[in-house]
């Protein structure tokens, strides 16, 4: 966490074309913004991809400019930013532990209950935990495991998020644009 800076979550919808991520990251680079997390996947609308990116900034105006520069790209349908208060957000983390050390630990049940851990895999060599949550929660489990058992491998996904206040209006926006285009040009 960076001091005196706010974590912003930027949501972007784009056409599914080659090189969109490059277009987006270039804009971050030019504004000297460091990407904290990144998650990309197909959206609810076929052919449209959704990017969720987090970045720290001490100035909301920088976010306004960033989003307008991203929105301006031809292949981008829509871009906006939010702070944590506006969002329900989640990250996933995977933890690989030595089976031998897990068995020797003695209070695994306590950890599983405390952190609401799911166990994905148990073999003679390793156990894999999955934890979904905010950064602080996945980090908390990591620190506790690292101290008590030792973590062989650890990975955390980028943030995914949905807004609390409003419905995603992308489909409405697209319908409006298509309608206006029809009105303007007919079927010519």
């Amino acid at each position: 966490m960076e001091e005196n800076k706010t974590l912003y979550t930027i949501t972007i919808f784009s056409e599914n074309t080659v090189g969109v991520l490059n277009q987006i990251t270039t804009i971050f680079t030019r504004r000297q913004l460091n990407i904290e997390t990144l998650s990309v996947s197909p959206s609810a609308i076929k052919g449209i991809h959704k990017f969720t990116i987090t970045t720290f900034s001490d100035d909301e105006n920088v976010m306004k400019k960033l989003v307008s520069l991203i929105d301006k790209r031809v292949d981008i349908l829509k871009a906006y930013y939010n702070t944590n208060e506006d969002l329900v957000h989640q990250e996933l983390a995977l933890y690989k532990l030595s089976t031998e050390k897990v068995l020797a630990h003695g209070s695994i049940e306590y950890l599983v209950r405390k952190y609401n851990v799911r166990i994905l895999e148990v073999s003679t060599d390793c156990v894999v935990f999955l934890k979904a949550g905010h950064y602080e929660e996945t980090q908390g489990l990591f620190e506790e495991l690292a101290e008590s058992i030792g973590v062989l491998q650890f990975v955390r996904s980028g943030r995914i998020a949905i807004t609390k206040s409003k419905v995603e209006r992308l489909s409405d926006m697209l319908a409006k644009r298509e309608r206006e285009n029809q009105e303007k040009w007919g079927n010519a």
């Binding site: 056409e15 031809v74 292949d75 981008i76 349908l77 697209l174 644009r177 285009n181 040009w185 010519a188």
Partner: peptide
């Protein structure tokens, strides 16, 4: 081309 849905 007279319309692109991603471009206003």
């Amino acid at each position: 081309t007279i319309f692109l849905r991603s471009y206003l």
